[in-house]
Design a protein around this nucleic acid. Structure first.
Lengths: 144, 144
DNA sequence: CTTTCTGCAAACGATTTGCAGCAGC
DNA sequence: GCTGCTGCAAATCGTTTGCAGAAAG
């Protein structure tokens, strides 16, 4: 629980012209304290005393300020995590049974291979890649 | 436009105990004729004369028969494509501006690196990986 | 014939939005 | 103080579902 990612996040919020409120600080704290993307119900269950609508609005604001990233899993729920440049680049393990999403570090070899593929694809498709996602879909230990 | 993927798809439908109807054949034909995942409005605009609800129901049935796969892009629309084992393994280029999803082949080097990472992660996390997705998110040529 | 599909319209549910009052700065 | 955030309740909108008639096998 270092205070750095939290402080960087707040600074970024201000930089985007958004106000720093108790609710937003708490949201950031919750996301900083976990090691995997959370659904909105999960976030609210942990602590922030916010109306659902306000939580959604804040997460959207935080997303626009590049503090938070929205993640698509296998189910119909949006999940949220801190932006990667506030934490560390990682990929996701997605359980197709329960929907849970777990973070996994990105092996150097894999990253290098992805970078090579990205350069090749950008050249061939005139597509400007901003970032990549590698999702491994399967069944988690709890659901086996 | 070989007829093989279409026939394999129909065979699989039957095998799953589902009926082969005009609408389902058309859905499969539409998905077989395109080179990227389509949203439901896009699918219906191309041809099948189906009620939206029926199209959704059929796509769900086809998904359960392992004929079709549902794909999450960057926007709120579900997209559909033929199952990979009826076509070819590939990855996706996702335009964050317009939402369009384009197929790209998977370079052998990248695949090998992913396989290595998968084996390592399965061992470390007790997670059974069924398949992987590599999405490159950025801005497509049309949106630049 | 029986069972499964289809169309229509109504229901669902996650997310968004309008509005009046409260809080950041 | 102004402006932007908050809560509440109502609206949105992609997707799902109930039901009665049509089509597959």
């Amino acid at each position: 629980m270092p205070t750095e990612p939290r402080d960087a996040a707040l600074a970024r919020l201000r930089a985007a012209g958004q106000r720093v409120t108790k609710g937003r600080e708490t949201l950031i704290a919750v996301l900083a304290a976990t090691d995997h993307p959370l659904t909105l119900p999960e976030i609210l269950a942990i602590g922030p005393d916010l109306a659902q609508s306000t939580a959604y609005r804040n997460l959207t604001a935080l997303e626009q300020a590049d503090v938070v990233r929205r993640v698509n899993g296998a189910d119909e729920f949006a999940r949220y995590e801190l932006a990667e440049d506030l934490t560390e680049h990682h990929h996701h393990l997605i359980c197709g049974r329960c929907g849970r999403v777990v973070d996994v570090g990105a092996p150097a070899g894999l990253e290098a291979a992805v970078e090579r593929a990205v350069r090749e694809i950008e050249r061939e498709h005139g597509f400007a890649v901003r970032h990549h996602r590698v999702d491994l879909v399967g069944v988690c230990a709890d659901c086996r």
